[in-house]
Simulated assay, not measured.
Amino acid sequence: MKKIYLLLLFISVVSCKDDLKIIDKPIEFGELREQLTLEYMESHYGIVQDSPTIEPKMVVIHWTAIPTLEKSFGAFVNTKIGDHRTKINTASQLNVSSQFLVDLDGTIYRLMPENVMARHVIGLNHCAIGIENVGGTASKPLTEKQLEANIKLVTYLKNKYEIDYVIGHYEYTNFENHELWLEKDNGYRTVKTDPGKDFLMKVKNATKSLEFKEVPVK
Protein backbone atom coordinates (compact mmCIF):
# COMPACT_ATOMS: atom_id res chain seq x y z
CA MET A 1 0.00 0.00 0.00
CA LYS A 2 2.82 2.42 0.83
CA LYS A 3 4.37 1.85 -2.61
CA ILE A 4 1.01 2.58 -4.25
CA TYR A 5 0.70 5.89 -2.47
CA LEU A 6 4.26 6.95 -3.15
CA LEU A 7 3.48 6.39 -6.82
CA LEU A 8 0.32 8.48 -6.57
CA LEU A 9 2.24 11.34 -5.01
CA PHE A 10 4.62 11.45 -7.97
CA ILE A 11 1.86 11.16 -10.56
CA SER A 12 -0.31 14.15 -9.78
CA VAL A 13 -2.36 14.38 -12.97
CA VAL A 14 -3.48 11.52 -15.19
CA SER A 15 -5.03 12.15 -18.59
CA CYS A 16 -7.37 9.46 -19.91
CA LYS A 17 -9.37 8.79 -23.04
CA ASP A 18 -12.39 10.93 -23.95
CA ASP A 19 -10.70 14.09 -22.63
CA LEU A 20 -10.97 12.85 -19.03
CA LYS A 21 -8.50 14.30 -16.54
CA ILE A 22 -8.07 12.82 -13.07
CA ILE A 23 -6.06 14.59 -10.37
CA ASP A 24 -4.64 12.47 -7.57
CA LYS A 25 -5.35 13.87 -4.10
CA PRO A 26 -4.56 10.99 -1.73
CA ILE A 27 -6.23 10.53 1.63
CA GLU A 28 -4.32 8.93 4.49
CA PHE A 29 -3.77 5.25 3.77
CA GLY A 30 -1.02 3.90 5.98
CA GLU A 31 -0.74 0.69 7.95
CA LEU A 32 -3.60 1.56 10.32
CA ARG A 33 -6.10 2.29 7.57
CA GLU A 34 -5.07 -0.87 5.77
CA GLN A 35 -5.53 -2.86 8.98
CA LEU A 36 -8.96 -1.33 9.68
CA THR A 37 -10.02 -1.99 6.09
CA LEU A 38 -9.01 -5.64 6.30
CA GLU A 39 -10.82 -5.98 9.63
CA TYR A 40 -13.94 -4.41 8.09
CA MET A 41 -13.83 -6.81 5.17
CA GLU A 42 -13.62 -9.78 7.52
CA SER A 43 -16.19 -8.68 10.11
CA HIS A 44 -18.81 -7.37 7.68
CA TYR A 45 -18.29 -9.57 4.64
CA GLY A 46 -16.43 -12.66 5.83
CA ILE A 47 -13.61 -11.85 3.40
CA VAL A 48 -10.10 -12.66 4.63
CA GLN A 49 -7.29 -11.23 2.49
CA ASP A 50 -3.71 -10.04 2.88
CA SER A 51 -4.46 -6.86 0.91
CA PRO A 52 -7.69 -4.77 0.83
CA THR A 53 -8.09 -4.99 -2.92
CA ILE A 54 -11.43 -5.44 -4.67
CA GLU A 55 -12.74 -6.62 -8.02
CA PRO A 56 -15.10 -3.77 -8.98
CA LYS A 57 -18.56 -4.83 -10.14
CA MET A 58 -20.44 -1.59 -9.60
CA VAL A 59 -20.11 2.17 -9.36
CA VAL A 60 -22.02 3.94 -6.58
CA ILE A 61 -22.70 7.66 -6.99
CA HIS A 62 -22.99 9.89 -3.91
CA TRP A 63 -23.16 13.47 -2.79
CA THR A 64 -21.21 14.73 0.21
CA ALA A 65 -23.87 17.22 1.42
CA ILE A 66 -20.85 19.43 2.21
CA PRO A 67 -20.50 22.73 0.32
CA THR A 68 -16.79 22.83 -0.55
CA LEU A 69 -14.08 20.57 -1.92
CA GLU A 70 -11.72 21.00 1.00
CA LYS A 71 -14.37 20.36 3.63
CA SER A 72 -15.55 17.31 1.70
CA PHE A 73 -11.97 16.07 1.42
CA GLY A 74 -11.57 16.73 5.13
CA ALA A 75 -14.42 14.32 5.87
CA PHE A 76 -12.50 11.47 4.20
CA VAL A 77 -8.82 12.19 4.74
CA ASN A 78 -8.38 10.88 8.29
CA THR A 79 -7.99 7.17 8.96
CA LYS A 80 -10.47 6.92 11.83
CA ILE A 81 -14.09 7.98 11.70
CA GLY A 82 -15.20 10.90 13.86
CA ASP A 83 -17.22 10.51 17.04
CA HIS A 84 -20.00 12.63 15.48
CA ARG A 85 -20.85 9.84 12.99
CA THR A 86 -22.94 8.09 15.62
CA LYS A 87 -25.09 6.12 13.16
CA ILE A 88 -22.13 4.24 11.72
CA ASN A 89 -19.07 4.59 13.97
CA THR A 90 -20.14 1.65 16.14
CA ALA A 91 -19.86 -0.65 13.10
CA SER A 92 -16.15 0.18 12.61
CA GLN A 93 -13.55 2.83 13.39
CA LEU A 94 -12.59 2.88 9.71
CA ASN A 95 -13.39 6.29 8.27
CA VAL A 96 -15.71 6.71 5.32
CA SER A 97 -14.12 7.44 1.97
CA SER A 98 -14.50 6.84 -1.75
CA GLN A 99 -12.18 6.33 -4.65
CA PHE A 100 -13.23 9.57 -6.35
CA LEU A 101 -14.39 13.06 -5.39
CA VAL A 102 -15.87 15.44 -7.99
CA ASP A 103 -15.84 19.18 -7.30
CA LEU A 104 -18.65 21.58 -8.25
CA ASP A 105 -16.66 22.69 -11.31
CA GLY A 106 -16.39 19.10 -12.55
CA THR A 107 -12.78 18.52 -11.54
CA ILE A 108 -12.23 14.85 -10.72
CA TYR A 109 -9.97 13.89 -7.83
CA ARG A 110 -8.82 10.35 -7.10
CA LEU A 111 -8.50 9.87 -3.35
CA MET A 112 -7.16 6.31 -3.36
CA PRO A 113 -6.44 3.47 -5.80
CA GLU A 114 -9.51 2.41 -7.73
CA ASN A 115 -9.20 -1.25 -6.79
CA VAL A 116 -8.72 -0.76 -3.04
CA MET A 117 -11.77 -0.93 -0.79
CA ALA A 118 -13.30 2.31 0.46
CA ARG A 119 -16.07 2.52 3.05
CA HIS A 120 -18.92 4.28 1.28
CA VAL A 121 -21.84 1.86 0.88
CA ILE A 122 -23.14 -0.72 3.33
CA GLY A 123 -23.05 -4.30 2.11
CA LEU A 124 -21.26 -3.61 -1.16
CA ASN A 125 -17.92 -1.94 -0.44
CA HIS A 126 -16.13 -5.16 -1.37
CA CYS A 127 -17.17 -4.76 -5.03
CA ALA A 128 -18.00 -1.05 -5.43
CA ILE A 129 -16.12 2.01 -6.63
CA GLY A 130 -17.49 5.19 -5.06
CA ILE A 131 -17.88 8.59 -6.70
CA GLU A 132 -18.57 11.37 -4.20
CA ASN A 133 -19.83 14.72 -5.48
CA VAL A 134 -19.24 17.93 -3.53
CA GLY A 135 -22.51 19.56 -2.50
CA GLY A 136 -25.98 18.13 -2.87
CA THR A 137 -27.76 20.57 -0.57
CA ALA A 138 -30.43 23.18 -1.33
CA SER A 139 -27.82 25.92 -1.29
CA LYS A 140 -25.19 23.89 -3.18
CA PRO A 141 -26.99 21.56 -5.62
CA LEU A 142 -25.03 19.26 -7.89
CA THR A 143 -23.99 21.00 -11.11
CA GLU A 144 -24.04 20.31 -14.84
CA LYS A 145 -20.23 20.16 -14.74
CA GLN A 146 -20.44 17.41 -12.14
CA LEU A 147 -22.97 15.56 -14.28
CA GLU A 148 -20.64 15.69 -17.27
CA ALA A 149 -17.73 14.52 -15.11
CA ASN A 150 -19.71 11.62 -13.65
CA ILE A 151 -20.74 10.43 -17.11
CA LYS A 152 -17.12 10.49 -18.31
CA LEU A 153 -15.86 8.81 -15.15
CA VAL A 154 -18.48 6.04 -15.24
CA THR A 155 -17.59 5.42 -18.89
CA TYR A 156 -13.88 5.27 -18.05
CA LEU A 157 -14.48 2.80 -15.22
CA LYS A 158 -16.76 0.59 -17.31
CA ASN A 159 -14.11 0.40 -20.02
CA LYS A 160 -11.42 -0.47 -17.48
CA TYR A 161 -13.24 -2.95 -15.22
CA GLU A 162 -16.03 -5.51 -15.53
CA ILE A 163 -18.64 -3.14 -14.09
CA ASP A 164 -22.18 -4.54 -14.13
CA TYR A 165 -24.11 -1.80 -12.29
CA VAL A 166 -24.12 1.96 -11.84
CA ILE A 167 -26.36 2.93 -8.92
CA GLY A 168 -27.23 5.81 -6.63
CA HIS A 169 -26.44 5.44 -2.96
CA TYR A 170 -30.18 5.47 -2.25
CA GLU A 171 -30.53 2.22 -4.23
CA TYR A 172 -28.07 0.15 -2.19
CA THR A 173 -30.67 -1.76 -0.13
CA ASN A 174 -32.18 -3.10 -3.37
CA PHE A 175 -29.21 -5.46 -3.40
CA GLU A 176 -30.17 -7.24 -0.18
CA ASN A 177 -30.45 -10.96 -1.04
CA HIS A 178 -28.46 -10.35 -4.24
CA GLU A 179 -25.28 -12.39 -4.77
CA LEU A 180 -23.15 -9.25 -4.40
CA TRP A 181 -24.64 -8.41 -0.97
CA LEU A 182 -22.38 -9.67 1.82
CA GLU A 183 -23.32 -7.57 4.88
CA LYS A 184 -23.39 -9.86 7.93
CA ASP A 185 -24.95 -7.34 10.35
CA ASN A 186 -28.69 -7.35 9.67
CA GLY A 187 -29.17 -4.27 11.86
CA TYR A 188 -26.62 -2.13 10.06
CA ARG A 189 -28.53 0.07 7.60
CA THR A 190 -28.93 3.81 6.95
CA VAL A 191 -31.47 5.70 4.84
CA LYS A 192 -29.91 7.53 1.88
CA THR A 193 -31.20 9.90 -0.80
CA ASP A 194 -27.99 10.74 -2.67
CA PRO A 195 -27.24 11.66 -5.37
CA GLY A 196 -30.88 12.47 -6.09
CA LYS A 197 -33.01 10.60 -8.61
CA ASP A 198 -32.83 13.27 -11.31
CA PHE A 199 -29.02 13.39 -11.30
CA LEU A 200 -28.72 9.62 -11.28
CA MET A 201 -31.22 9.11 -14.11
CA LYS A 202 -29.29 11.59 -16.27
CA VAL A 203 -26.09 9.59 -15.70
CA LYS A 204 -27.86 6.31 -16.47
CA ASN A 205 -29.54 7.67 -19.60
CA ALA A 206 -26.24 9.05 -20.89
CA THR A 207 -24.52 5.68 -20.39
CA LYS A 208 -27.22 3.38 -21.79
CA SER A 209 -24.90 2.24 -24.56
CA LEU A 210 -22.67 0.66 -21.91
CA GLU A 211 -25.47 -1.82 -21.17
CA PHE A 212 -25.40 -1.84 -17.38
CA LYS A 213 -27.67 -4.34 -15.67
CA GLU A 214 -30.91 -3.17 -14.11
CA VAL A 215 -30.92 -2.57 -10.35
CA PRO A 216 -32.89 -5.34 -8.59
CA VAL A 217 -36.44 -4.46 -7.59
CA LYS A 218 -36.80 -4.63 -3.83
Rank of each mutant, 00 (worst) to 15 (best):
M1N: 09
K3W: 01
L7N: 07
L8S: 05
L8Q: 12
S15M: 07
D18F: 05
L20C: 01
K21S: 12
I22E: 05
D24K: 12
I27W: 06
E28K: 14
E28Q: 15
G30V: 06
L32Y: 08
L32G: 05
L36I: 11
L38G: 12
Y40P: 08
M41I: 05
Y45E: 13
G46Y: 08
V48G: 03
D50V: 03
P52K: 06
V60N: 07
P67Q: 14
T68S: 15
G74Q: 13
A75K: 14
F76Y: 15
V77E: 15
I81D: 12
D83R: 13
D83S: 15
A91C: 07
Q93I: 08
L94A: 12
S98G: 15
V102W: 06
V102G: 06
L104M: 03
I108G: 03
M112G: 10
A118N: 12
L124T: 10
H126Y: 07
E132D: 14
V134L: 06
V134K: 10
V134C: 07
A138F: 04
A138D: 07
K140W: 01
P141V: 00
Q146L: 00
E148A: 13
L157F: 11
L157K: 11
K160T: 14
E162L: 01
Y165G: 10
H169G: 00
Y170C: 01
N177D: 13
L180S: 09
W181Q: 15
L182F: 10
E183V: 01
K184G: 01
K184V: 00
G187A: 00
G187E: 02
Y188M: 04
T190G: 05
P195F: 00
K197Y: 01
D198E: 10
F199S: 02
V203K: 00
T207A: 00
T207H: 03
F212S: 08
F212Y: 14
F212L: 06
K213G: 04
K213C: 02
K218Q: 11
